Simulated assay, not measured.
Amino acid sequence: MVAKSGEITGLVGPNGSGKTLIMKCICGFFSSYEGEIVLDGKPATEEERKNIGAIIETPGFIPYYSGYKNLKILAQINKKCSKQDIYDSMNTVGLDPCDRRPIRKYSLGMRQRLGVAQTLMEDPAILIMDEPFNGLDAEMTEKLRNRLNEEANKGKTIILSSHNPIDIEMLCNQTYYIQKGSIK
């Protein structure tokens, strides 16, 4: 699979086909696999993987902390973004960074939006988005589609999976079909 800068690459296939596993391999969560992961025409390196923003499966956050506090903790790992970057990222997905409500009181859609905010907050060159539209209403889905197109237009490499063929058709420059863990 080759994903290029400035393009959105789609991964499609039935449940259990391996889309999420491939994304985890790209992110470096698994190192034992056949084949080669190529990003922007080059084999993926650990250095490139430091510049990946990813939302894979259900976003996991500390349920007793607010959305802002969760993102602040995550931002301290790489020290790449400021408080304002976190605020901007949350506002982009329609979440109030001043909302002190704990994550456990967020709806599914709100948790998903927070996951998207976390993916974007450090302005990574590569975005890995596994079913990012899950739980989002029509308005937020349209905003996220627009944002992903904006990110691609900035030259970012985006890899996206979705069960909604409309998302793939509207967004992706190229699409790979995954079946039984292999790219077809």
Rank of each mutant, 00 (worst) to 15 (best):
K79I: 07
Q112L: 11
A117V: 13
P124M: 05
E122D: 12
E139F: 10
K69Y: 02
L74G: 08
I86N: 01
M129F: 03
P63Q: 05
R101D: 01
K79S: 14
N78Q: 15
T58H: 12
T45Q: 04
L74E: 12
A138C: 02
K83N: 13
M90Q: 06
P97T: 01
Y64I: 14
L114W: 02
E139V: 14
C81S: 15
R111T: 13
N78M: 12
L108W: 01
L114M: 13
L108S: 10
A138N: 06
T58G: 07
M140I: 11
K72I: 05
R101W: 00
C98H: 08
I73Q: 04
R101V: 05
D123W: 00
C81A: 12
I126Q: 06
N134D: 05
I77Q: 14
K72V: 07
Y65Q: 09
P102D: 07
D85N: 11
I52A: 02
I128V: 15
D130T: 09
M140K: 07
T45A: 06
T45R: 05
D123I: 00
R49S: 06
A44E: 13
I55L: 08
G109R: 09
R111E: 06
M110P: 11
M121N: 14
I56H: 06
G135E: 02
Q84N: 13
Y64N: 15
K72N: 12
G53F: 00
I62Y: 10
I103H: 03
D99K: 03
A125R: 09
K50H: 03
T92N: 12
G94N: 09
V93I: 14
I62L: 08
L127Q: 03
R104P: 10
P63M: 00
D137L: 10
G109S: 10
M140S: 09
P63W: 00
S66C: 08
A138E: 14
P124C: 06
